[in-house]
Every structure is written in structure tokens, then in C-alpha cells.
């Protein structure tokens, strides 16, 4: 599926399958096309090319009001001239349901989001968290096949966000509705999603569980998106996808795992190393398994659950490594070795 605005492709050749009952997160920076993709699913934008199939039916050309898909808007888009109950009942009224049925379903939704007492309240008299729940209830009231959520927690403050994330998951588990969530917050995507699709400049670069994306990033961009990472560039040795391969780096040859096909032998590639997977050891002598890099400690930062060390490697670059809190702290200036386990070092194209 492709969407162009003018000649600029906003979403390009995206192909995606959603499983029933999963939470799928579209993750990427603003302007990467994730919102456009969501709006295409809702029907507010028409794909320039491509199809959207729901249960085998093509949705392209079906106007938004006839799609069995509902959306929760980033701004919530609550109708200011209707009460909370009026907002929730709006979609049900469009279906032409009987009054009693509408009342029952509205009450059920209010219970689901724990807003029973506020049915008659106007949206402008609600707190941010309450508004978010009304928006969720309104979008779920029609029992959509797929619920689209555009930055559902973006307008909430930090403390509220974590509680709401858990709640959102809980509600989704109970209803079994497929959720498609757009977010720019990797942490949020990791908490919410069964699977994450990372978008970069209009392309879907990798789809997988949070663990897959974290442990086995397909690109340098994905590696940097989720959590901290050390990147060491170099030239690829022989081998292919699924194999351990040598990368010839300024720090010497290092072995990493090529999960998705990082390139042909001789191509430039990058080794992605998580700070917590670097094995930090005092002294200047190596300890055997795998390669280890000599370095000098620059500083140590105490982070509560772990200690973050910064160390200068032989070619002058700074690498970051963490050690669990409670281990004996190392002093700045000390010579250390950083062990690189090949299974924890992912090779990605440069």
C-alpha cells in the first residue's frame, strides 16, 4: 500500500498483516507516516495504490462511516456539545439501534471505563484521564473489528500514563478486539504491544515482538530506537543471514550475529551492542570466550538499579556498558576489558 501527497510518498509499499485480537503498535518519529497509515485504515485518506482487506473484504473506497473500524483520536475529538453518555451513544445511534439497546450498551461502556457517575457531564468538565476514557469508550461502543488508537496516551502526564497503559491492555484482553496503536514512544510500544511495526520515512522497516526488535534489530535505526546501544561500524566478513559473521572494525575483528541479512561480504555494516550485554571486567587481560576490547574507564553513573560506565576504547570512541547495582564499583581511570558475546551482538546494514 502506498500513499503519496503530491509526489512525496508519505507511506511507501507497506505490507502488513494483523492477527485477530492482538495489540499492534506502529512506532516511529513524527512524520514517519504512521498516522497516515492509520488514517488510511480509518478511511480518511485513500491509498494511492494498494488494498486494505478486512476478513477478505477490500475496504479501499469504502467511506469512513461504513467501515467496521473505529478510531480513538489523539485529541480525543469528544463532541463538546454532547454529554459523556451522548458521546458514547453517538455511534450506536448511527446504527439505528433501539433506544433501550443504546442505553444498555452505553451503560456497559461507562462501566468498562469506570465512569458510571459521569454520564451527564460535559467533556469540558472532565479531567484529561477521564476524557481519554470517554474517547476509548466511544470508539469501543460500536464493537469494532479493529480499534485504531492515535497516540492514545500522548496527552496524559507521565504518572497517569503508566496506569492507563495497564488498563488499556486489560480492556483489550477482556474484549479481544484488535488494537492498532500509533505511538512515538518506544517504551509505550514495548509495554502495550504484542507486536511492533517500526516505521521510518514512510517505510515499515521491521515487524516483531518487543524482544525481537530489541535483541535482533533489522536496521541501525531500529537498534537505536529501542533503548541504548553502542554502534561499531566495519566491513562484513563472509556468511549470510542466520549465521555468526566477522565484522572488521577499527577495534579489530569482532564477531556478531547476522539475523536478517546484513549484506554481502565486504559490505559495510554496523555491530549493535546493548550496554547491559557488554561484559565489563577489570584488568587489561582478556578472559577467553569471544572477543574483548581493552578500554579505559571515563566515569560511572549510579542509576539505582544499575551502574552506567563510559569507557574509552583503543581508537578513542566512547562505549557504554552497565553493570547491576551492588557489584563492586570500578574507579574512573581504571583499565578494563569489555567482553563482546557474539550472540548478543547484532549485525545490521550500515
Amino acid at each position: 500500500m502506498t500513499k503519496r501527497f503530491g509526489t512525496v510518498p508519505a507511506v511507501e509499499a507497506v505490507s502488513l498483516d494483523l492477527a485477530a485480537g492482538e495489540i499492534f503498535c506502529l512506532l516511529g518519529p513524527s512524520g514517519c507516516g504512521k498516522s497516515t497509515l492509520l488514517r488510511m485504515l480509518a478511511g480518511f485518506e485513500a491509498p494511492s495504490a494498494g488494498r486494505i482487506l478486512l476478513d477478505g473484504r477490500d475496504l479501499a473506497g469504502v467511506p469512513p462511516h461504513r467501515r467496521p473500524v473505529n478510531m480513538m483520536f489523539q485529541s480525543y475529538a469528544l463532541f463538546p456539545h454532547m454529554s459523556v453518555a451522548g458521546n458514547i451513544a453517538y455511534g450506536l445511534k448511527q446504527e439505528g439501534l433501539a433506544k433501550a439497546e443504546i442505553a444498555a450498551r452505553t451503560a456497559e461502556m461507562l462501566r468498562l471505563v469506570q465512569l458510571e457517575g459521569l454520564a451527564a457531564r460535559r467533556p469540558d468538565r472532565l479531567s484529561g484521564g477521564q476524557r481519554q476514557r470517554v474517547a476509548l469508550a466511544r470508539a469501543l461502543a460500536k464493537r469494532p473489528r479493529v480499534l485504531l488508537l492515535d497516540e492514545p496516551l500522548g496527552a496524559l502526564d507521565r504518572s497517569l500514563r503508566e496506569a492507563t497503559q495497564a488498563e488499556l491492555r486489560e480492556i483489550q484482553r477482556r474484549l479481544g478486539t484488535t488494537f492498532v496503536v500509533v505511538t512515538h514512544d518506544p517504551g509505550e510500544a514495548m509495554v502495550l504491544a504484542d507486536r511492533i511495526g517500526v516505521m521510518d520515512r514512510g517505510r515499515l522497516v521491521q515487524v516483531g515482538s518487543a524482544a525481537t526488535l530489541y535483541e535482533r534489530p533489522a536496521t541501525r535505526y531500529v537498534a537505536g530506537l529501542l533503548g541504548d546501544v553502542n554502534l561499531i561500524e566495519g566491513r562484513l566478513g563472509p556468511g549470510g543471514a542466520g549465521q555468526a559473521r566477522i565484522l572488521d572494525t577499527p577495534l579489530g575483528p569482532l564477531t556478531g550475529t547476522d539475523h536478517h541479512g546484513a549484506g554481502e561480504a565486504g559490505a559495510s555494516a554496523v555491530l549493535a551492542l546493548r550496554p547491559e550485554r557488554l561484559r565489563l571486567a577489570p584488568g587489561s587481560e582478556g578472559e577467553g570466550d569471544g572477543e574483548s576490547l581493552p578500554a579505559t574507564l571515563l566515569d560511572a553513573t549510579y542509576l539505582g538499579d544499575r551502574i552506567l560506565y563510559r569507557a574509552r576504547a583503543a581508537d578513542g570512541r566512547v562505549l557504554r556498558a552497565t553493570a547491576p547495582a551492588g557489584t563492586a564499583p570500578l574507579a574512573p581511570g581504571e583499565a578494563v576489558r569489555l567482553g563482546v558475546p557474539p550472540e548478543a551482538a547484532a549485525l545490521v546494514p550500515a
Partner: peptide
């Protein structure tokens, strides 16, 4: 707010 109109369409209003 345009999204109000989109929300109404999304909820099934022609």
C-alpha cells in the same frame, strides 16, 4: 477541530 468531524464519520455518520 477537524477531528470532531472525522470522529463522527468514524462512528458511522454519513
Amino acid at each position: 477541530d477537524r477531528s470532531l468531524l472525522e470522529a463522527a464519520a468514524d462512528l458511522g455518520a454519513p
